Amino acid sequence: MEYLFDTNIFVESKKNLPMDVWPTFWTKMVELISSGNIYSIDMVKDEIDRGGDELTDWIHNNAPRGFFLTQDMAVMAKLVETIAWAQNCAVHFSQSAIVDYVKVADSYLVATAAARDMVLVTYEKSNPQRRNRVMIPDACNAIGVRTCDLNTALRELGIFI
C-alpha cells in the first residue's frame, strides 16, 4: 500500500518532533520517501515552501522530484468528482468553504489518493456537519478513499522508532 501525506503531517511533525531532538524519526521519513512507500503532491510542496524554514530546507534536501506527484488525467477526473460532491453535499457547505477546498491542496490530495488507490495520511478529523470547511476525511469517505493518521501509517509500514 502507498500512502499520500497531507501538509499537516510534515508541519505538525516539525512542531512536535523537532529535527534536532528526533533525528531518528526524520531519518526514517527519508527512508520511507526513498523506498517509494510514501508520497505527497506538488501543491503540498508549495505550501511547505511558503514556510521558508527548516522544514522547507529538509524537503528540498530529502524529497526527490518523484516524491511530489503531479496531476494527470485520472487525478483531474477524480478532482471533478470530489468538487461535485462538495458542491452537492447534503451539509451545504458555504461557498467560501468550497472555494477554499478547491484552492488549497486538500481537493487535489483527495483526488490523487482516489486516482492512485492510496491511503491519505492526515491529522484532520471527520466532521460531517461542518459547513465552513470541507474536511479531508469527509471528502475521502464520500468518494471511497481511506484515511489514517501518521501513527497508523507508520504501524502499517512496520516503522517503529
Rank of each mutant, 00 (worst) to 15 (best):
L109V: 11
N132T: 12
V75D: 06
V102T: 11
F93H: 03
L32P: 04
N62A: 10
V119P: 00
I38H: 03
W26D: 10
P137M: 06
M29R: 01
N37Q: 12
N61G: 12
Y101I: 11
T147W: 00
K103V: 13
D149H: 08
A97H: 02
H92E: 15
E31A: 14
V11P: 02
D149E: 13
N62L: 06
F25H: 06
C89K: 01
Y123G: 05
A114R: 07
V30N: 04
G51A: 09
G66K: 04
A97G: 07
P23Q: 06
V145S: 03
V21S: 11
L150P: 00
I59W: 07
R116Q: 12
T56E: 01
N8M: 07
A113H: 03
F10W: 14
D138R: 01
M76R: 13
K78M: 14
I59A: 13
K45Q: 13
M73C: 03
E12M: 10
D53P: 06
S34C: 03
T122F: 04
C89W: 00
L120C: 08
M19E: 13
G36M: 00
I98N: 04
A111Q: 04
V134H: 01
V75E: 04
R133G: 04
S13I: 11
T112M: 12
H60F: 12
D100Q: 13
A74K: 15
D149P: 00
V91I: 12
G52M: 02
F67Y: 12
D117G: 09
R50P: 05
A142V: 11
T24I: 15
E54L: 06
